[in-house]
Design a protein around this nucleic acid. Sequence first.
DNA 1: TAGATTGTTAATCGATTAACAATC
DNA 2: TAGATTGTTAATCGATTAACAATC
Lengths: 177, 177
Amino acid sequence: MDVTASQIRQDLNHFGGFGQQGYGYNVDHLYDEISHILGLNKPHRLVIVGAGNLGKALCGYTYFERRGFQVCGIFDANPEKYGMEIRGLRVMSMDELSGFISKEEIDIAVMTVPKDAAIAVAKQLSGAGIKAILNFAHVDLDLPKSVPVQNVHLSDSLMTLSYELTRAGKGPLGDHG
Amino acid sequence: MDVTASQIRQDLNHFGGFGQQGYGYNVDHLYDEISHILGLNKPHRLVIVGAGNLGKALCGYTYFERRGFQVCGIFDANPEKYGMEIRGLRVMSMDELSGFISKEEIDIAVMTVPKDAAIAVAKQLSGAGIKAILNFAHVDLDLPKSVPVQNVHLSDSLMTLSYELTRAGKGPLGDHG
DNA sequence: TAGATTGTTAATCGATTAACAATC
DNA sequence: TAGATTGTTAATCGATTAACAATC
């Protein structure tokens, strides 16, 4: 994993001593502790905002369920999509979003909306009391620090890949001109 | 952007002096230089391996075209999908993959296959001379260093988000026990 | 005891930042 | 010249690694 033993000990110890000197770590216990630290010990309720291709794909993403991320609702701005059924969920309108978040005690919003809508949607989510956002739109949202955002910007990955591909086999400082 | 002026100068200078002391940077020229460094100046040809929900969603991802990433083919292991048309492309079988890559001079493969298939597919791709892989499967592929891999592991983003969400408002060292 | 393994401090390394010279 | 801005060296900071004591 490209991690030294030293680093693992150092990192684990940052959160507490989970092992026994001379004896080792109890793997099951360690797994629990880490789940706790990551907040994965209790389920999270989430909504998907944007019922496009990506939104639909994510809706059927089995990892969500397996790890206790419950997909509770899916929303879209396009009236033609209202009522459409995706994996047993009916697409709802953006007007219903805020109410749904508070009533259903939603933690997390997954944003798969077009770039231009992203900032407004983020505002609405934040106003409705969302606790965290997973953002697939090509914008950096800046929200109050109290609402953590994780960006999944494919464009970044693609650019990095293109860079590595281009540089492959060239010297450490490469040549670009 | 959370970057100091110092850092920008330092970073740009790592690749070369693109500015003029006392005068500034020419934005258009700088944009070109960076495109070059990232290898975005010429188009890349790519295939999508795995015609599931995510594969289909990515197939319609307009950013690809806009930035010169040409989606040239889409493949799946399920015979029922052969011939299915997605955005003007016919789904092909895995047997056709290797030949396609060399004949069509494909640079990049986007892997949206199930975890269990991922390693074998990566091997096939690497054997067929692929130059780079964008991997959405929940596995860390280890391929020869000559084939750069970018992993898009949603699970990582979700765990980070869960961590931040859980820690929000708590002290810098948090409390988890 | 001898071997093994974690906890913790110190040393090393690299990246970020600050400072200033060079130039327009 | 005065002000502004990049290039580049030095200082600072943090993270990784190494070393060793503590413990089983």
